[in-house]
C-alpha cells in the first residue's frame, strides 16, 4: 500500500454498550466510504453478547440460552460465524477506501492483519498469521477476525482475546446433540486461547504498525457528522428484528461448526444413521457413528475412518455393507464449506 499525505485517524471509543461496540465501527466504515480518512479504531464491550456474521442463520444460535443469559444478538455486516463476545475482548478495526486495498481478498486480509500480528509481538506474544489467515500462537487462535466492504470502504476487524469463556462460547450455539456439543467444547478449548497482555502496549503498537503499513501519520480523531448520522441509523437497524433475523438460506443437511480455520466439527442425521465427527486440517480427528445395522462393528467402523480425508471415507466404509453405505452418505453431506 503506497504512502499518502493523508493521516491515519485513530479513535479509541473505550468501553461501550454491546450495541455500540458494533455500530460505532460500522459508522466509521460509512464515514470512510464517504471520504473520511483511513481509520484505526478500538472498542471494548461493557457487557457480553453474541454477534453473528452477515450470511449466517439465526438458527445456528441457542436463542433460549441467549435470552436466559441476557445476551443480545447482533448481526454484523462482515463475515464469519456466530461468536460470543464479552468485556474480556478488545476489538480493533481498520477501515480504508476500497481503492487502497488489494483486489485479492486473501492479499487484502493478509496485509491488513499483519500489523495486528506485529502488535501482538510487540507486547511479547509470539503470534503468527497462519496459512488460513488466523492469528495464532502455537496453533491456537488468539484473535478472531472478520472483514467486509461497506459502501466504498473495506473494514477488517479483530478481537484480542484476553480472557475467554469457552463453555459460554459453546453454549450460545444450537448444536442439537450432546456429543457434538462436547466435541465443539473440546476443540474450542484446544484451538482458541486467551492471551492476557499489555493492552495499552498492544494499542500503541497497533497504531504504529498500521500507520507504517499504510504510509500515514497517526492522528487522534472523532466521528464526523456523516458518521454520527450513520450511527443513529445503525443503532436502529441493529435492533430491528428483520435485520437480526437475516435472510433465510437454503437448509444444509449437516450442522457444521468452525472452531478455527481448518478445525471444525459436524453432525449429520439421516434416519437412524448418525455421524458426529471433527476435522482437523482436512482429516477426520474423531468420529462417532451409529446405525442400527452395524451390529457390534461400530467401534471398528469408527477406527476405520479416523485420520482419513473426507473423500476417502466412502471407500473405507464400503467394507461395512449397507450400514457402511448409509454412513458414507451421511459423511457426504458434510462439505466443510466455510470451515477451512
Amino acid at each position: 500500500m503506497a504512502a499518502t499525505a493523508e493521516p491515519l485517524r485513530v479513535i479509541d471509543f473505550g468501553e461501550v454498550s454491546p450495541l455500540r461496540s458494533q455500530t460505532l465501527w460500522h459508522a466509521v466504515a460509512h464515514g470512510v466510504s464517504a471520504g473520511a480518512p483511513a481509520t484505526l479504531s478500538f472498542v471494548r464491550p461493557a457487557a457480553p453478547y453474541v454477534s453473528i456474521g452477515y450470511h449466517r442463520e439465526l438458527g445456528e444460535l441457542d436463542l433460549d440460552f441467549c435470552r436466559q443469559n441476557d445476551l443480545p444478538v447482533m448481526r454484523r455486516m462482515v463475515g464469519g460465524g456466530p461468536v460470543y463476545l464479552d468485556p474480556g475482548q478488545l476489538f480493533f478495526q481498520i477501515a480504508l477506501p476500497v481503492s487502497q486495498v488489494p483486489a485479492s481478498r486473501h492479499r487484502a486480509l493478509a496485509d491488513l492483519l499483519a500489523p495486528a500480528v506485529e502488535a501482538f509481538r510487540a507486547v511479547g506474544v509470539p503470534a503468527n498469521l497462519d496459512e488460513h489467515l488466523e492469528i495464532t500462537v502455537g496453533g491456537a487462535k488468539v484473535c478472531g477476525h472478520g472483514a467486509g466492504q461497506i459502501g466504498e470502504a473495506v473494514v477488517v476487524c479483530g478481537n484480542v482475546i484476553e480472557t475467554f469463556d469457552h463453555a459460554r462460547a459453546t453454549a450460545i450455539l444450537s448444536l442439537g446433540e450432546d456429543r457434538l456439543r462436547d466435541e465443539v467444547l473440546r476443540l474450542m478449548r484446544r484451538h482458541v486461547r486467551a492471551t492476557p497482555l499489555d493492552v495499552d502496549g498492544f494499542r500503541a503498537a497497533a497504531v504504529r504498525g498500521y500507520a507504517n503499513a499504510l504510509g500515514r501519520q497517526p492522528q487522534p480523531g472523532e466521528l464526523t457528522a456523516v458518521e454520527t448520522a450513520a450511527l443513529a441509523e445503525l443503532d436502529a437497524q441493529f435492533c430491528d428484528p428483520a435485520w437480526v433475523g437475516g435472510t433465510p438460506r437454503p437448509a444444509h443437511p449437516a450442522r457444521q461448526v468452525k472452531v478455527r480455520a481448518g478445525v471444525w466439527a459436524f453432525s449429520v442425521a439421516e434416519g437412524d444413521t448418525r455421524v458426529v465427527a471433527s476435522v482437523r486440517d482436512g482429516r477426520l480427528d474423531r468420529a462417532w457413528l451409529s446405525d442400527p445395522g452395524l451390529n457390534g462393528s461400530t467401534v471398528s467402523a469408527q477406527r476405520a475412518v479416523r485420520g482419513l480425508r473426507l473423500a476417502e471415507v466412502g471407500a473405507a466404509l464400503a467394507a461395512f455393507g449397507d450400514p457402511g453405505q448409509r454412513l458414507a452418505s451421511a459423511f457426504a453431506a458434510a462439505d466443510g464449506r466455510g470451515c477451512v
Binding site: 456474521g53 452477515y54 450470511h55 455486516m77 462482515v78 463475515g79 464469519g80 481478498r105 486473501h106 487484502a108 486480509l109 489467515l133 477476525h145 472478520g146 472483514a147 467486509g148 466492504q149 466455510g338
Partner: peptide, 10 residues
C-alpha cells in the same frame, strides 16, 4: 453479496 475467508463483499 459474497463471503470468502470471512470477507463479505458486494
Amino acid at each position: 453479496r459474497v463471503e470468502a475467508a470471512k470477507f463479505v463483499g458486494p
